[in-house]
Design a binder for these strands. Structure first.
Lengths: 266, 266
DNA sequence: CGATGCTTTGACGAACTTCAACGCGGGTGG
DNA sequence: CCACCCGCGTTGAAGTTCGTCAAAGCATCG
């Protein structure tokens, strides 16, 4: 079913428009790419047909071929352990990259599944190497993005290590909020496409605990939740809870709220 | 005090010997480096004077200049939160890289301190970019190592998310064991240079819990611990505990046991 | 030799998981 | 168009694990 689609040819204008709200944008344009080079990059980026909810982008154990960038929708990555239990390793929103963890083993350590209808761009990894001589900044930018991923992982680590359920959920919500906001969407009202079960799995909590915390936040007047629809009324209180007893790192995963961004890029 | 040392000139033979047990080895030699290129690399790698226990390699917030590789000893990285609490982000053994998380922000998000007397190699990062045209494989290898770091982070994440104290400590010990073994040292008898407090901090547990677990393992006959000296008598039981209710990912951090290495590299 | 910091041990309480049951909403088939 | 059904979410009660508090033992260093 998921046979690789022959890449569609798009116009230059269309391409620019498509990439400008995309994380791959940072992988190319800022390096001062000329139009002909842009066309070159255009050739290697494939647009795949949309994924429907529940469809997999790749399965655990599949050989690594490409990096992917989410263009719309959201994708969950998860690893299945030998005894059949799932560990959610991340949620990926538009403009974020998937597959970075597979480069070293050349095999996907986790599966990626669409939480809703999604569109993605595919960047065949062998082309990145080939393209490197024309666009030396490409790989350099890749290194930067991976560094950010590592940094984000450390923040998440701190969160899971020693934070209460309340703090974790507060941080989780702020993280989502920040990621939506950075994309130009509302940071105070959004759809959480992932289930409570997935959130609990990701945050190291029981489903029931997640549910109870959402209820508590709602009773406190901090937010309103109705199924997947979230409205944050008092983000500052959420922030106060998340930072309660530590740095306000607020996750930082997957292109998220830069863990420590005091350096005012001069 | 910590002024950058002018790099010492070493002989080619000495250099090769020095690098063979080092993670930077993978950054250069496998690419089929000629002797003159090796000399080039030699020029950019600085050996710093040894660090004494408690000395910092870099501080949190310092501007990022170089990657470091541990040659001997062990180094702890940790971030200090606004209210003065520490979060240990990793322990680095010989042959492992430090500083990968600082590339994106160009500033160290955590401090690195020697747990014992250490020697390190310094690889100025601006030289990596410069060198890239001569050694195109260098950056590529860097990407691979970062990918492994991300993968390891995911394994650790799973561990902190939903594992009991017993499972965490078992996994932690196996991880250390594996890393020593891969370096050619004993995987069954080694020195844990980090304090119980640091272990607890890293694993998201109270010091007392760490202590109790070590005592329990000892009572079970799995191992002997006397201060920092560890002898593992029954690694298989340790493994059984760590894998108890999930994949035997056993961490995977910092050049550690490949998270899922079932794929018999054919 | 005393001081200090790290480690260990015990008792207690809080937080979260587990177990169980119910409510709600969306999708499907009649 | 309605009714049923199934999965997801919520809520309550009981149980367990682990963190906190307190105190004592022990190595290292001045």
């Amino acid at each position: 079913m998921s046979a690789a689609q022959p890449h569609k040819v798009v116009s230059l204008a269309e391409f620019k428009a498509a990439c400008q709200s995309c994380s791959l944008f940072q992988l190319c344009l800022p390096m001062g790419i000329a139009d002909n080079e842009l066309a070159l990059l255009d050739k290697i980026i494939r647009r795949r047909r949309p994924l429907k909810r529940g469809e997999h982008l790749y399965q655990q154990g599949h050989s690594f071929q490409s990096l992917y960038a989410v263009r719309s929708g959201s994708i969950k990555t998860y690893a299945t352990t030998e005894d059949g239990r799932e560990q959610v390793t991340g949620f990926h929103l538009p403009g974020e990259l998937l597959g970075l963890d597979a480069i070293c083993t050349e095999r996907h350590g986790c599966a990626a599944v669409a939480l809703e209808t999604c569109t993605v761009c595919e960047l065949p990894y062998d082309q990145v190497d080939r393209l490197n001589e024309f666009l030396p900044g490409l790989q350099q930018q890749l290194v930067r993005m991976m560094s950010r991923e590592i940094l984000g992982g450390q923040a998440l680590l701190a969160l899971l290590g020693k934070r209460s359920a309340e703090e974790r959920l507060a941080a989780y919500l702020l993280n989502l909020s920040g990621r939506f906001q950075r994309r130009g969407l509302s940071g105070t009202e959004f759809i959480m496409s992932m289930s409570r079960t997935d959130i609990g799995n990701y945050m190291g909590l029981a489903v029931e605990t997640v549910s109870r915390m959402f209820t508590r936040f709602q009773e406190m007047g901090i937010l309103s939740v109705r199924r997947k629809h979230v409205v944050v009324h008092q983000p500052e209180r959420l922030r106060a809870i998340a930072c309660q007893s530590g740095g306000c790192t607020v996750l930082g995963r997957a292109g998220a709220a830069l863990p420590q961004t005091e350096t005012k890029n001069g």
